[in-house]
Design a protein around this nucleic acid. Structure first.
Lengths: 240, 240
DNA sequence: CGGGGCATTGAGTTGAGTCAACAACCGTGG
DNA sequence: CCACGGTTGTTGACTCAACTCAATGCCCCG
């Protein structure tokens, strides 16, 4: 397997050998996290950003009444808290959903990169922009779409992203997320998630057994959800 | 009045004279937009980013059923579509709410800046991160807070941001937004916005006449909303 | 083979939406 | 200076998508 960080950035433009070397150097420290453990806690100061190499993680915040909200689901290759490079204090937490392997990238190294490698800098910046675009997409869903549309949209998004990193086979992929977590992400209760998923199954749009999602009718699901993968900017090219 | 772009970036660290010159040069082209006109349209390619100098603007998307969602409200000093520098194709539109003055910053100039001025590059990047943090905050509101809390939170946020650019006097500020627009932003209907605002007024948290908002009890409003201005990162300093 | 997540189901409730008037405000043209 | 029409704000009556509460079933793992 090629280096996940290099792979992620190369989608947006070819890298020089020197740049690749730099990326390998700054991401060589790898640590593991157990499921449910916090990779970066809300309110803390970070001195390194974390690149998810293996496993799934979420970005979440806790409200006073004990409620939780999940604002992102991260998959391998995601730079889960690149934002903490410039916004030192975490305004949300990041937690492992499954066993995770994470590369620690020191902020001091990132600082050096921004001084010397403008192209890499823009590539990193781009990653945070795509992240933000995804958040906006979720926002629109929560603001104006039905539970059914939101879940459909979420499944389309995950399918697309998993496919992009080679973790979807045909129309099926692993989604190690409970219905409770789905609800916390899409602003729904567990009960309602359950019923809505049943509807999607009954209507022949998806099949799912345990953690495996199979999209039976991608076309129809995307129409339901008004899903257009453009916002993921999977093929956005950067100028040198 | 000092230059709005310089003012915005200097909050995060002192700039050199050279850097200030560059900023002045790249933002010297200023154009006007009438209320309701589109500053940048959804789906189009941009070759310049737009800095709002005067007036209010929104970021919005339209859904198939004719519904609209507003994902941001921009005030003077905001770089409304800095993201289009790297994500050329707009995944949302930006429209003027009031008469607006906008500085056009060519993407080619931004590219040059990223090549030569690492500190400015990081400062620009930071702006997009704060923007994203705000979007996440709205997301959490839509996902897990009541209409009342969301509106309270929105008012706290606007108060804070307006104060930061010197456009709030004491606890009052202008908010040239209709109840319909408020609803489109916070995922509510006009009717419900109306009733909820009345509640906030009745409970002595705010007063409002026309476009002027007066926060009567800032402390109480913030508690209601669980508002913590940290996410606005108004004083986040950047290293050189 | 027993306990702890998860998923599912049923029944009753509610925050927010819908629909439909009506009132207040504001700029414009006569 | 006023009448007019369009936009925005307000109200009332009714509906419904999603929530709450409370069981029950299921499956995996030790």
């Amino acid at each position: 397997m090629s280096h996940p960080l290099i792979a992620a950035l190369e989608k947006h433009g070819p890298l020089t050998d020197e740049e690749k070397d730099v990326l390998r150097q700054i991401s060589s420290r790898v640590v593991s996290f157990a499921p449910k453990s916090e990779i970066a806690s809300e309110g803390t100061l970070q001195s390194e950003s974390k690149l998810l190499i293996e496993g799934f993680a979420i970005r979440h915040v806790h409200l006073e009444d004990g409620d939780r909200h999940i604002s992102a689901l991260h998959i391998p290759g995601d730079f889960v808290d690149l934002i903490s490079f410039l916004l030192k204090k975490m305004d949300h937490g990041v937690a492992a959903l499954t066993p995770c392997k994470v590369a620690l990238v020191a902020h001091s190294d990132l600082l050096e990169v921004t001084r010397r490698y403008p192209f890499l800098t823009r590539a990193f910046w781009l990653l945070t922009l795509v992240d933000a675009a995804t958040t906006r997409q979720w926002l629109t869903g929560l603001g104006r779409k039905s539970a059914r549309q939101r879940l459909a949209h979420f499944l389309c998004e995950m399918h697309c992203r998993m496919e992009a990193i080679g973790m979807a086979r045909d129309e099926s992929f692993e989604l190690p997320v409970t219905q409770e977590e789905l609800g916390d992400a899409q602003g729904l209760t567990t009960v309602h998630v359950n019923r809505t998923l049943q509807e999607l199954r009954a209507d022949g749009l998806i099949r799912s057994s345990g953690r495996t999602i199979v999209i039976s009718d991608l076309q129809a699901l995307r129409e339901e959800a008004e899903f257009d993968p453009a916002y993921l900017h999977l093929h956005q090219q950067l100028e040198r």
